[in-house]
Amino acid sequence: MSIIIVDHLVKRYGDFEAVKGISFQVDKGEVFGFLGPNGAGKSTTIKILCTLLTMTSGKALLNGYDVNREPLKVRQSIGLVFQDYSLDDRLTAEENLYFHGMLYNVPRALLKERMEQVLAMVELTERRKDLVRNFSGGMKRRLEIARGLLHHPQVLFLDEPTIGLDPQTRSAIWEHVLRLRDELGITVFMTTHYMEEAEHCDRIAIIDHGEIVALDAPKALKEDIGGDMVTVTTTNNKQLAEEIRQRYGIPVVEDGTVLRMEVEDGASFVPRLAVDFAGMITSVSVHEPTLDDVFLKTTGRAIRDELLDEKERFRQRRLGRRRGR
């Protein structure tokens, strides 16, 4: 059963078409990953599904409710964790939850019990009386996830939930997310820049220039690439990229300091390459396709560049805020 149905969704800002008529469905209980370069239309799509932005044309149903016509019912059906923190840091953890429970009209009799449940789930029970401003980034994120679940939503939206967090915290948050899916059967719709995280998703959609360019299970997407990925460092990338293209008739992508190519059989290709370009190749590696390769192939950009951009943006914003305060 589909819990999210998006049908020819278009969003236009003046002449610029940010989302170009995309369609997809998300099944109940799946972890759905939404990937794409910055400015590809990810955030716009999420905002429309969360009723924070109106679409130009098309249709979207969430939990059976029309996003355009029944925004309040859609909002009641979803939990949100935004890219930026959205807690009141002058309130305690418990007060933030209470506030949320009241806004989502959780019955009074249930609220206390639910608060205890979600706090225990994210292991913040002992810090419940502390002001959020004294929390670490990971604790804030966990509290936000707890808050997003307090009203038992059907779909949990996570927009870059692990950005700016250390690896331990990231994997802890993933554990929570996967447990939610398994224990509560909740649907998780998320965006991420970390490819190793996207591997956890049941299905991934890659969006680029406002269009969906790939949509499948991570395994299937990788298998689509077929062959092996060969990465080469050379003495002259520009020249060699062109020569390799001409000699073997395969596409070569210049990715930072390396050249990447996709070949049928890596093991037999490498010796040929080494002989043909003797002295110009400084190192070679062969690996099976990863989601990075899928991303690179479908969007023409490496996700790592995106990640750096994103981290930089995040850092800048935090600095800006501190100054502003």
Binding site: L72, L80, F82, D84, S86, D89, H100, Y104, R147, R321
Partner: peptide, 17 residues
């Protein structure tokens, strides 16, 4: 302040008028 620190979003996406 609430907009700057993100909390306004929490209020704006709530299912309330």
């Amino acid at each position: 302040w609430d907009r700057e620190f993100g909390f306004l979003k929490e209020i704006l996406v709530a299912p309330v008028p």
